[in-house]
Nucleic acid binder design. Structure first.
Length: 106
DNA sequence: TTGGTGACGGGGC
DNA sequence: CGCCCCGCCACCA
């Protein structure tokens, strides 16, 4: 397993409930600034095995990425359960919900 | 080995 | 805002 994959998994596992991270942000923190698509791959193939909170990952514009209705609706439901408001078009407010593991209060 | 494939991202219009 | 193009990169048939 590549170090990138290991790091990305840890990062995803540490996203707190009620917050989201973007594919690109995770890729960058895991050491591959242009590896957003690899994050997609990881979520797709390893979410179950590693019990990843896959629903807390959205694209850089703050939208649910799925085109597929079933997956789209499921992700929206899971986010709203965590008090994250998602519009019917799948858009949420990154200013409010984005999690930055490198940011610390005072 | 090679070419197709994305739950992406940035830039241009 | 919406579209389109292009670069990206590990995986797999």
């Amino acid at each position: 397993m590549q170090p990138f994959t290991v790091k990305a998994i840890k990062i995803i596992q540490n996203i707190p409930s009620g917050k989201v991270m973007t594919y690109g942000q995770i890729a960058k923190l895991a050491g591959s600034p242009r590896g957003a698509r690899q994050v997609v791959r990881i979520l797709h193939s390893l979410s179950e095995k590693h019990q990843l909170p896959w629903h807390r990952v959205v694209n850089g514009k703050g939208e649910i990425g799925f085109k597929n209705d079933l997956s789209f609706n499921l992700q929206r439901e899971l986010l709203e359960k965590e008090e994250i408001y998602v519009s019917s078009k799948g858009i949420l407010d990154l200013q409010e919900y984005l999690y930055d593991p490198l940011y610390h209060h005072s």
